[in-house]
Design a protein around this nucleic acid. Structure first.
Lengths: 170, 170
DNA sequence: TCAAACTTTCAAAACTTTTTGAAAGTTTAT
DNA sequence: ATAAACTTTCAAAAAGTTTTGAAAGTTTGA
């Protein structure tokens, strides 16, 4: 397989994966492009490689910087901005976990906490309230554990994580 | 807070969460509705609660059954089909993990394996090929570990999981 | 200070996904 | 066998998301 073809396929699959997980397909593709790039790329490079507009390239590069997956780098003798992706996959994974937890899981946790206080307004809906309360309580308990686990992983060193994890599961 | 309000908020938040993670918002809402329901619901019940069409309700109920999150139940003396959600959150989480791994992660893994074989076609692209190969290799290695970890979690007993796993990660 | 080189913004257009609802299909009771 | 009760399908419409590109904004070097 040739490098051009291989790159295209990687970008394509990474884009599809992102898209299936609620990430803008183009953002994932830009990320993929930078992940496998040998050196920093400019906005124009990204535009040319992915056949996208300047606005689109700019927007997604900035979004990737917000996620701490991409950094600006200065190339001396050039006025353009260049971009590189974080290549350490453990760091990539924990950055994504951190962001998604913060943006999407934490708000759900907050709602679950609020919902733990429902009044039983009379005998009429006792059963309904009981079912609701139990479900919310269970989901909250699970989410709290998952939350703690994720916090640990986010802070963990890669080697420590894999080695202690593997010890448990063998 | 009143039960009706609380339910509505839970359904809303669960729907938003699903949506952010690439799951059809209505599918997540139907799931939420059934998760907190005191007893099985018919298609008409779901339609009425969520204000959605028959086609939409039917489609999402079937999809939830495909994910093994919802089951048909027979209510004697009624010709309609009724539906309940799996309420054990550990089972819910592992079912979701299993499905998403199978549908979305496994295909990526397959692509990564294929991409491990790229030719260095001359000295011109040596650097480019090296960067690509290293990135793909690293991602593949990480994904393999994550894969194994997920398989273990999916097969694990809830109690065993929380007791041994969380001793480490808290 | 100026203007060239570059980045950002955002309204409108293009595209994608979801929803609707009526028609077709299936099951069940008599 | 029939018809009522129900479920499924799917083409068209609606809603939601993404992309474009040109105008506005910013930075830099002479």
């Amino acid at each position: 397989m040739k490098i051009t073809e291989a790159k295209a396929q990687f970008i394509n699959s990474w884009g599809a994966l992102g898209s299936q997980w609620g990430i803008n397909r183009t953002m994932a593709q830009v990320h993929a492009l930078l992940l496998v790039a040998a050196k920093p790329m400019s906005t124009d490079d990204v535009m040319a490689e992915l056949n996208i507009s300047r606005g689109n390239a700019n927007m997604n590069l900035r979004e990737l910087m917000d996620w701490n997956l991409v950094d600006k780098v200065l190339v001396s003798g050039d006025r353009k901005e260049y971009f590189t992706a974080e290549k350490d996959i453990w760091k990539v994974a924990t950055a994504i976990m951190y962001q998604r937890k913060k943006r999407e899981l934490d708000p759900m946790m907050k709602v679950l906490t609020q919902l733990s206080n429902v009044e039983t307004s009379g005998a009429a809906d006792a059963e309904e309230v009981a079912a609701f309360t139990k479900a919310v309580k269970d989901i909250k308990k699970f989410t709290e554990q998952a939350d703690k686990t994720m916090d640990t992983i986010i802070k963990a060193e890669e080697n420590w994580f894999w080695s202690s994890f593997l010890k448990l599961f063998r």
